[in-house]
């Protein structure tokens, strides 16, 4: 039973750890499917996390915090759009710039407003998103196998966790069952075809970036208002980049993206759990190695195990009407 409990707990933290990845990964999916590479996922999550925690703490409302996280993150997405769609700038440069601005401005503003070394004040109950207990969870907790799975694994998460996983079928539906999705996929493959069909390429790409901004905002709010009780500097810690890796690994498909993010979340959870505890045969493994494992596996997986991942064909290329 100990082993079973350990597995349940690891899977539980897998879910918690994969949520920000999943939201960021889906965010990247909207923009990359529309032909805009977005290396600035990291920065947008970071400003979302900061804006969310700051607003929640000032206004004493979790939902106002979430709203502010989304607004600021979308605003940053629009900066990316202004540089790379309207002015046809290099998308990588614009994305990197956004990451730098995010990293610097969150610390400066945090220090100026709260004087806690770049942190925001610890969030009080009501300012954070609390765990939700699913109906009947307590009643069946003692039923063997099913009980713990339902009560521990599925129940007891914040609303943002459920939202993140609902975004997967929703994104699939938007992309493959709606007019907007058809056009969005088309503009990432051949913007000239969209233009000659009488649709504005720029407006379509801006709308894709709005979707991206909303999702990175939620991802950021999750980090500072669910996983943590406030904003800490650089708290995204590379999750935006891991999300991009997951996106490639998922071949730009929503359901694959969920599995990719769960895998990366699991590696993270396993490395935390196994730190310091001796493994059979190998013996004690240094903690640093376990922490590096997800990254090592990412490189290995991306290098050879997924076959050819073909990105959207017009990705990274600003659209210029040709003569």
């Amino acid at each position: 039973m100990d082993v079973f409990n350990a597995i349940i707990q690891t899977l539980d933290s897998t879910i918690r750890l994969s949520v920000p990845l999943l939201l960021a990964c889906l965010a990247g999916l909207y923009s990359e499917r529309a032909g805009i590479f977005d290396i600035g996922l990291e920065g947008k999550m970071l400003v979302g996390a900061f804006a969310g925690a700051a607003a929640a703490s000032v206004f004493h409302s979790a939902f106002l915090g979430l709203g502010m996280a989304v607004v600021i993150s979308v605003a940053f997405a629009m900066i990316h759009g202004f540089a790379s769609i309207t002015h046809r700038g290099n998308q990588i440069v614009s994305g990197v710039a956004i990451n730098f601005i995010a990293a610097g401005s969150t610390i400066i503003l945090g220090q100026a407003w709260f004087q806690q070394g770049g942190r925001t004040p610890a969030l009080q109950p009501g300012e954070r998103f609390e765990a939700i207990t699913l109906p009947g969870a307590e009643a069946i907790r003692d039923v063997p196998i099913i009980g713990p799975i339902y009560a521990e694994l599925l129940s007891g998460h914040s609303i943002l966790v459920y939202l993140a996983f609902l975004m997967v079928p929703f994104t699939w539906w938007v992309l493959f069952r709606t007019r907007f999705g058809l056009r969005l996929r088309a503009v990432g493959e051949n913007p000239a075809a969209v233009d000659t069909a009488g649709i504005s390429v720029a407006w379509l790409r801006y709308r894709a970036l709005i979707c991206t901004g909303i999702l990175t905002g939620i991802a950021g709010a999750y980090l500072s208002m669910v996983q943590n009780g406030g904003f800490v500097k650089d708290m995204t810690a590379g999750k935006g980049y891991i999300a991009l890796a997951a996106l490639i690994f998922a071949k730009w498909k929503p359901v694959n993206a969920m599995f990719a993010c769960l895998l990366f979340g699991f590696l993270d959870a396993a490395s935390i759990r196994l730190q310091g505890s001796p493994l059979p045969i190998i013996g004690k493994v240094p903690a640093q190695f376990m922490q590096a494992l997800p990254y090592i596996l990412t490189v290995i997986l991306l290098a050879g195990f997924i076959g050819k991942a073909i990105p959207p064909r017009a990705g990274g290329v600003p659209y210029v009407k040709e003569r």
Binding site: R183, R185, A186, A193, A197
Partner: peptide
């Protein structure tokens, strides 16, 4: 002006949905 990995139908309706 076609999207190469779309079906014929998808290309035909693009912009005229």
């Amino acid at each position: 002006m076609l999207v190469d990995n779309f079906t014929v139908l998808e290309n035909v309706i693009l912009g005229a949905e």
